[in-house]
Amino acid sequence: MKDVVLSNIHKTYKGRDIPALNDVSFETGEGELFGLIGPDGAGKTSLFRILTTLILPDSGCAKVCGKDVVNDYKEIRKIVGYMPGKFSLYQDLSVEENLNFFATVFNTSLKKNYDLIKDIYIQIEPFKKRRAGQLSGGMKQKLALCCALIHKPKVLFLDEPTTGVDAVSRKEFWGMLKALKEQGISILVSTPYMDEADLCDRIALIQNGKIMSIDTPHSITLNYPDPLYAVQSDQMGKLLHDLRNFREIKSCNAFGDYHHISFVSERKETGNELKDYLLKKDHSNIKLNAVAPGIEDCFIQLMDSE
């Protein structure tokens, strides 16, 4: 069964010319960890709000576990867990009180579903008497995840759970998601960090309200249209500028300690011609290697071709 089905969803907010969502369609499978990858303003949050029955689409159809987001909204609310991008628990209730509150709302108790949240909850349990507002960012995030899970939802919606979180805590959080997935919960998660895409079963790349590509991270990178190269020299700033002025260059982007480039045409001599050109421009220690494209390369390529 498909857990989430979206067909031709459109949404334009009042007073705006540009649609927030423009003909969005995709499906996620049962028990799938599905990632929605895109920058701020791409439409990720609008999509979550439609799926969690908080706003209505202008047109199109959306279903969660076979139930329609408009007609069956009450049933959907019982079977989904939602962690919004903005911390939305009660700041003046303690950790324990928040959990008990959400459990009661869903007609259950902390005890009943303790197994599901145990691994996450034990990390914040020492602070269970502390008010949620007094927790650190990482602990707030863990509490919010526990509250979203307390009624054992079938589908979990996580809107940018790792935004503003440092690289170490982000790794930790993705570890938790993997463990939840193994317990049979479907997860739809959004992130602006392209490096997190590889941790999902499948991803959708979204920009300006439109889905640019949907597939497994591996297949998306395989579909990159050109051979890609990584270039380095001892003057990286100047190198970027000089590369862009080389006549055979198709794309050129900074990627950490290398610049990634592709060529207009694939001729054998191009690589050597580029090296000669760069030597003439006073670069030394020039390195030019073929490199496998990552999700960020694909995202940039798709943005450029839109």
Partner: peptide
Amino acid sequence: TGGVDPVT
């Protein structure tokens, strides 16, 4: 640059 698209 938090949340900004990769091109920008």
